[in-house]
Simulated scan of single mutants.
Amino acid sequence: MFPDSPALPAGDEDLRAADAIARAAAAALRGELDTYPKPGLVSPVDSGSHTDMDAGTFRASAAAITPFFAALARAGAAGAAMPALRRIGLDAETAMRAATGGVNTHRGAIFGLGLLCAAAGARPGAGPGALGRLVRERYGAAILDGPVLLHAPGARARRRHGVGGAPAEAAAGFPTLYQVGLPALRRGRRWRPGDPQAARVEACLALIAHLEDTCLLHRGGPEGYAFARTEAARFIAEGGVAQPDWRERATHLHRAFVARNLSPGGGADLLTMTLFVDGFEAP
């Protein structure tokens, strides 16, 4: 059963639509997890820069939070305001921590992907850019005016380093997703047809190069943040996955991130969202 949402009682068609959105969200979470090499991040190959989680932790988390994406889709379809979405998101986080023994695997995805699921519920069959516009128009002001978890690592990094982070990206309608992530994913497919792994790596590195990632700032400070963005940008500028040795280069970069204890969690979340939008919005 899906968790309760503030939506009015839904008919079978509404439930099927919400279930389809939740399944698309789950597929995006799996696609991000299965991507390798992505610098410093957990995959089925290794745990990257993390000692408290692995691919199994992420799979358990994804299974636990997927029903809440259906609830968010139903809430979006019913025109629910941001406080209602927050309540569902907090319930999803509780389920995540119960499934992972308290480890934060998907808080960022619950927030960003959850907003996109709400938008997808409100605007089925969306065209290019529609989900981001709806998030900006319906929820943007409330995202920036909402409660802040003062002791969360991302919030501390935003205050200390003066960056907007995930809230600013979401409130603006995910411009980095649309301007960087989607183009990179699609050019990766053109360059490496039949290799979806390569396209996801291209998108991941492009996002790391551009995103104000508070996870990097929290773990690596300004130096680690600058290193991560510079090296990701170098990979893209030198040809990305069009390079014949792209996999070796990306693997080397992954090991360099691990050596510096860097993990671009914001980039991973935005890769997940990019995969969701790519599958949902008609090109």
Results as ranks from 00 to 15, higher is better:
Asp14Tyr: 01
Asp14Pro: 00
Leu15Glu: 10
Arg16Gln: 12
Ala17Phe: 04
Ala18Val: 10
Ala18Asp: 08
Ala20Trp: 07
Ala20Asn: 10
Ile21Lys: 12
Ile21Pro: 04
Ile21Thr: 15
Ile21Gln: 11
Ala22Thr: 12
Ala22Val: 11
Ala22Ser: 13
Arg23Lys: 12
Arg23Gln: 15
Ala24Leu: 14
Ala25Cys: 15
Ala26Gly: 15
Ala26Lys: 13
Ala26Thr: 04
Ala27Leu: 15
Ala27Met: 13
Ala27Gly: 15
Ala28Arg: 13
Arg30Asn: 11
Glu32Val: 13
Glu32Lys: 11
Leu33Tyr: 10
Leu33Trp: 14
Leu33Gly: 15
Thr35Leu: 09
Thr35Pro: 08
Thr35Met: 09
Tyr36Gly: 09
Tyr36Ile: 09
Pro37Glu: 14
Pro37Ile: 14
Lys38Thr: 11
Lys38Trp: 13
Gly40Gln: 13
Val42Trp: 04
Val42Gln: 03
Val42Tyr: 05
Pro44Ala: 07
Pro44Phe: 07
Asp46Phe: 04
Asp46Gln: 09
Ser47Tyr: 09
Ser47Ala: 15
His50Met: 10
Thr51Ser: 11
Thr51Ala: 14
Asp54Trp: 07
Asp54Gln: 00
Ala55Thr: 02
Ala55Val: 04
Ala55Trp: 02
Gly56Phe: 00
Thr57Glu: 05
Thr57Tyr: 03
Thr57Phe: 01
Phe58Pro: 01
Arg59Gly: 00
Arg59Asn: 00
Ala60Pro: 00
Ala60Lys: 10
Ala60Ile: 00
Ala62Pro: 02
Ala62Ile: 02
Ala63Phe: 00
Ala63Gln: 06
Ala64Glu: 06
Ile65Asn: 01
Ile65Trp: 01
Thr66Asp: 04
Thr66Phe: 00
Pro67Arg: 03
Pro67Asn: 01
Pro67Asp: 01
Phe68Asn: 02
Phe68Leu: 00
Phe69Glu: 02
Phe69Asp: 06
Phe69Pro: 02
Ala70Pro: 02
Ala70Cys: 05
Ala71Tyr: 03
Ala71Glu: 02
Ala73Tyr: 04
Arg74Glu: 07
Ala75Pro: 06
Gly76Trp: 01
Gly76Ser: 03
Ala77Ser: 12
Ala77Met: 02
Ala78Tyr: 01
Gly79Asn: 03
Gly79Met: 08
Ala80Asn: 03
Ala80Gly: 04
Ala80Cys: 06
Ala81Val: 05
Ala81Gln: 10
Ala81Arg: 13
Met82Ala: 11
Pro83Cys: 10
Pro83His: 07
Ala84Tyr: 02
Ala84His: 08
Ala84Val: 05
Ala84Ser: 11
Leu85Trp: 06
Leu85His: 02
Arg86Met: 15
Arg86Leu: 15
Arg87Asn: 05
Arg87Gly: 09
Arg87Ala: 14
Ile88Leu: 12
Ile88Asp: 02
Ile88Arg: 07
Gly89Asn: 07
Gly89Ile: 07
Gly89Thr: 09
Asp91Pro: 01
Asp91His: 03
Ala92Ser: 13
Glu93Asp: 05
Glu93Tyr: 05
Thr94His: 10
Thr94Leu: 10
Thr94Lys: 14
Thr94Asp: 08
Ala95Glu: 09
Ala95Pro: 11
Met96Ala: 10
Met96Phe: 08
Arg97Ser: 04
Arg97Lys: 14
